[in-house]
Simulated assay, not measured.
Amino acid sequence: MHRLTLPLFTTAALLTGNAHAARPMNTDDARIVDAKACQVESWVKRPKGHTEFWALPACNFSGNLELTMGGALTHRDGGTHTSAQLLQGKTLFKPLQANGWGLGLAAGMQRDPGTEAGGGHDLYAYVPASFSWNDDAVVLHTNTGWLREQGQRRNRFTWGLGTEIQLHGRTWLMAETYGQGSDKPLVQLGLRHWLVPERVQIDATYGNRIGAGSQRWFSLGLRLLTPAFLP
């Protein structure tokens, strides 16, 4: 989100379907998909030794509740298998506005079908807070949360800190660090570009764990957003 070596919370889940700081960031923002609209975030991620294919559709049916359901397939030499499943809800207490701040709450359930994951469905919740400057040209996001690892039967603190900076027109720079418990943090740097403003976005990232060069990864993503169409 690392999406196989970390629980989904620190990957997509911070991941997940949100309106603007979604792909390519893992750190979530205090925004949701527009009312009565949907989005699909998809990407290919290449850590060492395997390739991951992700898809996270999300819709906002009621106006202030974004629902995300999706997962990942992982390809190794031995074949392709389902490696992640996720269901999440997200709401806002204060929507983020330009030159202001926003606050929300997200909670969900995640599952890694692999036997090495320990079994069970992990539960998580986190609070995304966002702060905007210079008419949204610079936005800072923070996440603090909780993760219940059912397989290990333990609770863990989760966190994220990220920023998005408008470089020029439709192109943005993303930088973040995030992690859980006492584990060494992960860092990620990426670019986002709107092919069609607010409708079609592409992105690319590079990431690694601090002090662990063997855990680096690359990703390429595509994000599609619809206008309002739901009844």
Rank of each mutant, 00 (worst) to 15 (best):
M109S: 07
G162Y: 01
L224P: 00
T158E: 02
I202T: 07
Q150I: 04
S42E: 00
G70F: 00
Q110K: 07
W217R: 08
L8N: 05
C59A: 15
G179Q: 02
H168W: 12
Q180Y: 09
F53V: 09
L230S: 12
G213H: 06
K90S: 10
N99A: 12
E176L: 09
K48V: 12
V139L: 05
S182I: 05
Q215H: 12
L86A: 04
D183I: 07
Y206I: 11
Q201W: 04
L140I: 10
W159T: 04
Y126F: 15
R23E: 00
T205Q: 01
Q201E: 15
F9W: 07
V127W: 02
L67G: 03
G49W: 10
G102M: 05
W54T: 03
G119C: 10
K36C: 09
T10S: 13
N208S: 12
S219C: 00
N26W: 00
L225T: 07
F53G: 03
L8K: 01
Q39P: 00
K48D: 15
L220Q: 03
D136V: 05
H141G: 03
V187Y: 14
G102V: 04
W217E: 13
G207F: 01
T142G: 12
P24Q: 06
P128C: 10
S182E: 13
L15C: 14
T5N: 15
G207D: 04
T142E: 08
L161K: 06
S83L: 06
Q188S: 14
I210T: 13
R156N: 06
L6P: 03
L103Q: 06
W101N: 04
A125W: 05
W159L: 13
R154F: 03
S219Y: 01
V139T: 14
T205F: 01
D29I: 00
G63S: 12
I210F: 14
R192S: 06
G190W: 00
G49C: 14
